[in-house]
Nucleic acid binder design. Structure first.
Lengths: 195, 195
DNA sequence: GTCTATAAATCGATAGAC
DNA sequence: GTCTATCGATTTATAGAC
């Protein structure tokens, strides 16, 4: 006979703790969230929390890594590496919005980072690398004559980034499957196209 | 004879203290900035700071009021109240970017507000009122047939807001006098207009 | 209007039992 | 893997002298 099935204790894995923590970080703000807040939200004590994560900053780093991994995965997609600059650009914008929605809380946290700690500076630099890749494609597309130079390509890239990233301000997970298409259309065919 | 000119003591008025405080709030983040930090940056003690402002939140409120007053002043401009919906919209976007640059630190602070205190919820609601005004104009312009409905008007308004507000992420005060024109052109004629 | 001094609460983190 | 208990530093804010 096997020993009787052990009753599964409602134990927290590191994954679910991260999920809870990121939720708290977003609603309260990272700096305003205490380890006490996180523990209460997870239903364990502060000390137990420290058994799973070295501290507050370790939680933030894990969350930022997840967001950045999702973003950079888009750049490794076949459609992001083949075709005309504009086609690659549109593919990336589409994929970026997909990641934004799929990893909404993690990317939201990433986009709020201002670079005050070592962890935040690291995340900020990886973000800049991603943005620089996109800005390079915008410039290529202008030089190839695929898009007109209505404004300076560097400015266009910044506004494109601002438009796309602003999705996290109001998006809700799961809703609106057509969002990547809609945002790409707005970015490439104009937000307010003249009649 | 007049009495000899009194030597002006290097006293801080509430205005200059607010300026210093907003600078600290932006670089450190509001929650991560202590009254000690503010006092040190202003060159006075913590207690002296409390003589001018009731506390941290009073400073935040004063800063948010300044940003919101600047934004709403744009809606009272003649060009924002006369002409076609699209013309009014373009006038507002232009003026919004002007305010963004002129009141850069104050608006930056406003756009980071998430609504965790009473003061922040008040600011967030006034911001929403401003955005709702713009969204209404977008809808009017679509219904009047002035712009095509490439995407849902509500989505277009949100992306427009995201594009415009993202200027605070990289703008520097004083630089680039053509920015309001450039951003308006990008918003109305497309960021990446096809050749 | 500025200061020293301090209250009262909370912070991130650790020790050590079970 | 969870807990109780606590340390030492820091926080917002106040009391009261000058």
């Amino acid at each position: 006979m096997n020993s009787p099935a052990r009753v599964r204790r409602p134990s927290h894995g590191p994954g679910s703790l991260l999920e809870v923590a990121v939720g708290e970080f977003i609603t309260r703000g990272y700096d305003a969230t205490s380890m006490e807040d996180l523990s209460r939200a997870a239903g364990i004590t502060k000390s137990s929390f420290y058994h799973h994560f070295a501290g507050k900053e370790a939680l933030l780093r894990a969350a930022l890594e997840r967001a950045l991994d999702g973003l950079f995965a888009v750049l490794d997609t076949p459609g992001a590496r083949t075709g005309s600059p504009v086609a690659r650009l549109r593919h990336i914008v589409h994929g970026q919005v997909e990641v934004l929605v799929r990893e909404l809380p993690y990317v939201t946290l990433l986009l709020r980072v201002r670079g005050n700690t070592e962890t935040e500076r690291w995340a900020l630099e990886r973000r800049r690398t991603f943005d620089a890749h996109v800005a390079g494609l915008v410039r290529e597309a202008v030089e190839a004559g695929e898009i007109r130079a209505g404004v300076d390509p560097a400015l266009a890239a910044r506004l494109l980034s601002g438009l796309v990233n602003s999705v996290v301000e109001w998006a809700r997970p799961g809703r609106s499957a057509s969002l990547p298409d809609d945002v790409a259309r707005a970015a490439f065919e104009g937000i307010l196209p003249a009649s």
